[in-house]
Each structure stands twice: as structure tokens, then as C-alpha cells.
Design a protein around this nucleic acid. Structure first.
Length: 199
DNA sequence: ACGGAGATCTTCT
DNA sequence: GAAGATCTCCGTT
């Protein structure tokens, strides 16, 4: 069952929690390439200095303001594509970064895309998983609540709170403070071998 | 295991 | 013109 727009309409921190255990699917030449989401990060609001949405609308971050459940894909460090899913109602800049997955289907394709690396390093990072699954700029603004764009997320297994860890987000400038909120910003499945950063 | 540096280029200041 | 929601390679321990 494909996650619908209502699933993504909550606050980004809530969506980040609920995405743990769901299945990210990319249809490649009719073949399913998929993985279980095991690590996420939320970005939300004009007050979130770590978010691309902090300074208002720009050509790049426009998807963050639009309808929930769309892909926001952008290039970082001139080299890597990072996949986000937009959240919250229209008009509020928010998205969840998919930071790590556990490969499930299409292992032959994933292995080829990550040839030469150890299996443990196929998808344990936001730049690595897009390479592994073949996700790039062509998926930007794709509607992930339908199969039409070839990229979506399906309901998966439920992860109990006892198996969930949280912490500050990764890779932000040292001067960027984590905004206070009742929910944390980074989520992962405790002790899962595919998360990008243990701790 | 851990640490540092280079790669590479778009975006916004 | 500088920084960036990262990864890989190469060095030393």
C-alpha cells in the first residue's frame, strides 16, 4: 500500500518518525529496486537554520513549499544527489531527508551501482543510497503518492518506540543550532547495521 | 580504526 | 566568492 498525501501532511519530525520501517521503491525498467528506510532527518520552517527553507523561497527549494509527498532532490558538494520527501501543508517549507535504507529488492542492480564496495556500504548514507537505487535530478518534484513517476514509498513493518533512537542531525555547520522542539530531528532504528552514523 | 584532504559544481551572498 | 543535509581514498596508528 502506497503512503498517501495525508501520511506526509504532518510535521516533518512526525513524518520522519513514521517513515522508519517503510519501503522506498524505485521502478527501473519494470523491475523493483527497494529498501527499508532505517534512518531519517527532518527539516522544517523558516526558523530552522539548517534547512534550505530558512531564507524563503528560492528556485532550488521550491518543492519544500508545495504539496506534501513530493520528492525534493538536490545536488550536494557538486557530486551527490540527496532524496527528501516534502511534508506539511502547502505554504510551509518542510521535508524529510532519507539518510539510509536496508536493501531489499533489486539487489543485482544495487550491487552493480555500488560495485567494488563492501555490501555494508551500499546504502548507509544519503548520497550512497541514491547512487545505489539510481535516484537523481530526474526525480525532483516527482509525486511519490502515486506509481506514475516510478518512485514511491510503501507501508512496511511497524517499528516500536523501544527500537528507535534519536539525536541531532548530521553534517551541519558547527554554528548551526538545533531548534528546540517537542520532537527530535534525526531518527534511526537502534543498532541497525545500515544506519550512516552509529552514535 | 581513525583522521585528513580532495573531488566537483550549484546555489545564494 | 564561499560554503555546502557527502563520499572516497590515502595516510598513519
Amino acid at each position: 500500500m502506497i503512503l498517501d498525501r495525508e501520511f506526509y501532511s504532518a510535521h516533518a519530525t512526525e513524518v520522519a518518525r513514521r517513515l522508519l520501517g517503510t519501503t522506498l521503491v524505485h521502478l527501473v525498467d519494470g523491475q523493483r529496486v527497494s529498501g527499508k528506510i532505517v534512518e531519517t532527518e527532518a527539516y522544517s520552517g523558516l526558523n530552522d537554520l539548517a534547512s534550505h527553507g530558512r531564507a524563503g523561497k528560492t528556485p532550488r527549494n521550491l518543492p519544500m513549499w508545495e504539496a506534501a509527498g513530493h520528492a525534493y532532490v538536490y545536488l550536494i558538494y557538486g557530486m551527490y544527489w540527496l532524496l527528501n520527501v516534502t511534508c506539511e501543508p502547502v505554504g510551509q517549507p518542510a521535508a524529510v531527508l532519507i539518510r539510509a535504507i536496508e536493501p531489499c529488492e533489486g539487489l543485482d542492480i544495487i550491487a552493480k551501482n555500488r560495485s567494488g564496495r563492501h555490501q555494508r556500504e551500499w546504502t548507509n548514507g544519503p548520497g550512497r543510497l541514491t547512487l545505489a537505487m539510481g535516484i537523481d535530478a530526474s526525480h525532483n518534484r516527482c509525486d511519490m503518492t502515486s506509481t506514475a513517476g516510478g518512485l514511491w514509498i510503501e507501508q512496511g513493518i511497524s517499528i516500536p518506540d523501544a527500537q528507535v533512537s534519536t539525536g541531532p542531525r548530521v553534517g551541519l555547520g558547527k554554528h548551526v543550532k538545533e531548534p528546540w522542539l517537542s520532537m527530535p530531528w534525526r531518527w534511526w532504528i537502534t543498532d541497525h547495521p545500515c544506519v550512516s552514523v552509529a552514535r
